[in-house]
Amino acid sequence: MKGMSIIVKKVTQLLSGIIFLYGIYIITHGHLTPGGGFAGGAIIAGAYILLILAFGSDTIKLKNIEKGSSLTESLAIFIVLLLAVLAFFLGSKIFFANYLPKGQLGEIISAGVIPLYNIFIGIEVAAAIITIFLALIIFKEEITK
């Protein structure tokens, strides 16, 4: 896959880190503002998609990235399940129960386990979207050969 022109490359270098930080902001403030795991994960995937679009890459390197992102997605969804089952053993006997202290209203560390769920769902969504994008690219490269 070829890259794009020099203007797009320079703007990508300037903006990709800022876009990644904004995605993390959306995820960690998911219980205070709109957004949350899914929207933030889509923005984080956007930062990586921007890099691949602007600079281009060859097929072998893309296949390596796809293995890593697929593994990350499986691990993240496993940790979300583990957090849900953990409530079952800590004495509350209900799935998805809140077993952490609730904290102060309006602060960033509050709302118990909901920020933890948000963070891992964000990682899972980002890895899944990158995997779908890479699968489409590799399919097209193979079909044109």
Partner: peptide, 23 residues
Amino acid sequence: SFILDIGITWIILSFIGTLTLAK
């Protein structure tokens, strides 16, 4: 004031979408 957050998100996603279509 949190509606401005949605605006910034819309700017970023629209930028990436237009680049993909142009490619």
